[in-house]
Design a protein around this nucleic acid. Structure first.
Length: 150
DNA sequence: GCCAACGTTGGC
DNA sequence: GCCAACGTTGGC
């Protein structure tokens, strides 16, 4: 099983929203590196749900992959801000995965994540990091879950 | 292929 | 609202 961290802006879609809707297509990924990670995800992989652009930013809970990558329908929908006129329906450029909630964690603010020795090498904390889908090691995932269980 | 301009992300 | 980081675009 693989582990991931995915960012979402809680003003748009937060962990509470995931709990409410029970499963959600993770739309709007428009970065090739992030897309390639989406394509590596397998059903059952565990995901740390991170609130970005929030006050404060931080980890909100655990989710899981319930459906593997398939074309993100918003790329073909001009009414959404994720529309990509350059994407060919015969060979779609962007994918989404479907996620479901697993467990809410005690909210772990970014400042606290920065104090965790297990996360010193995590891309989330790297200067200038903007990637919204990040692979985690087993140890990083376990440390975050343990921290959020306190 | 280089690189300047531009747009976006995301913390603060 | 500001700005650092960095990905993308497009002229050459």
């Amino acid at each position: 099983m693989a582990y991931w961290l995915m960012k979402s802006e809680p003003d748009v879609f937060g962990y509470d929203d995931l709990v409410r809707v029970k499963r959600e297509g993770w739309d709007g990924i428009r970065n090739y590196q992030a897309r390639n990670f989406l394509r590596e995800m397998r059903k059952g992989d565990q995901v740390i749900f991170y609130h970005s652009n929030a006050t404060p930013p931080g980890v909100a809970g655990v989710a899981k992959i319930v459906k593997e990558a398939e074309p993100d329908p918003t790329q073909f929908d001009p009414s959404t801000k994720y529309y990509d006129e350059g994407s060919n329906p015969a060979d779609p450029r962007w994918d989404w995965v479907t996620v479901a909630p697993v467990k809410r964690l005690r909210f772990i603010p970014l400042d606290e994540l920065r104090t965790m020795p297990e996360l010193v090498d995590c891309r989330l904390l790297a200067r200038g990091n903007r990637l919204s889908v990040i692979p985690l090691t087993d140890a990083e995932f376990a440390a975050i879950v343990a921290r959020g269980a306190r």
